[in-house]
Write a protein that binds this DNA or RNA. Structure first.
Lengths: 183, 183
DNA sequence: ATTTCTATATTGACCGGTCTATAGAGTCAA
DNA sequence: TTGACTCTATAGACCGGTCAATATAGAAAT
């Protein structure tokens, strides 16, 4: 399950971490190369389109990360309300652990590049589709009508994304915890 | 009421517009200077701290913009539900008019710089305080208890911020319109 | 009224450094 | 020998920031 630590994997992992903290534009390839300890030649070998291709892979890896988190939580919390609370707690923990620097792993990259970059926009859409579908499943499993589950999962993701932004500005997890009370 | 079109004003106005569309890091001073038609010397005359000082002023101007919007809407819509719907419609209009490029005027700048930059973080906190206080007023005026009004206004702002992000990714106003149904 | 002086406002040429990307030779295991 | 991978050097654009030179407005002096 765990990927083998190739240069390629290290590049994507490092890019994801740095884009999440400092954004896409202000993260230089130099820094990614230094921290991942990958050679520059490898970057353009694995990602011929350069920074954008690397970002695409980083968004995809981030999508998997969130999907795995949701799946794990869904297994332990079948009640929607419990699930939402647990999900918010995960994000709140991430924020606290990083001194409010690591919010949503794709939000900053998306705000900087969507919809200008078709490649990254598409990766972002895929992320939204997958996250919302997984959450809608939780709602449907508890008996909620499909259509309502779709809408609600979209609203939840929106509320959390916004809460992560405000949490970062205020350096407080309260906005995230307040999301749970909305549903 | 309208500010006189000095170089200073043009700089802040242009910075706000560009930061909103492309973010802070990927907007060069060159572009701001070219589009505002202001000379480079003026920038450092009015903003001795350079880009960061300009961004601070841009965030403050954006805060005023949103505050004015909220005040105007509050005058015409005393019912909270009506107000929320109208508020969402304003954002949806902004998104459509800009081909989903002009979302929240401070969100991208904040995700890129909070909490690393104390100056910009403080400007962001002030924005949140003022927006939420104005919206809470609308709720309180309609009879809602003060504490509940505070919480609800925070939740509304979070939901909208998140919806603006998703709207940008999906190039659709549906996420924004769905926010109105949450309250 | 006119000139001179002075402080403030304003300006664009210039700086060193960093950015992403490319080229092409070199390395090494299968 | 082949193909996957890595290295060094370099290109050329752009970055944010500095600073000496200039313009201007108003006070002071004549």
């Amino acid at each position: 399950m765990t990927e083998k630590p190739s240069h390629r994997t290290n590049l994507v992992l490092t890019a994801m971490r740095l884009f999440r903290r400092q954004g896409y534009a202000s993260t230089g390839l130099q820094q990614i190369l230094a921290e991942s300890k990958a050679p520059k030649g490898s970057l353009y070998y694995y990602f011929p389109t350069g920074k954008e291709g690397l970002a695409e892979a980083a968004v995809e890896m981030a999508t998997d990360l969130i999907c795995n988190t949701i799946s794990d939580l869904a297994r332990d919390h079948s009640d929607p309300k419990d699930f939402i609370t647990a999900y918010c707690n995960v994000y709140a923990g991430w924020m606290e652990d990083s001194n409010f620097r690591s919010g949503c792993p794709i939000a900053t990259t998306m705000l900087e590049n969507a919809p200008q970059s078709p490649v990254l926009t598409k990766a972002g859409e895929a992320a939204m589709d997958r996250w919302m579908a997984l959450i809608a499943d939780v709602f449907e499993t508890s008996g909620m009508p499909s259509e309502e589950a779709q809408t609600k999962s979209g609203q939840l993701v929106a509320a959390i994304e916004g809460a992560l932004l405000i949490s970062r500005i205020r350096q407080s997890t309260k906005p995230i915890r307040d999301v749970a009370d909305m549903f």
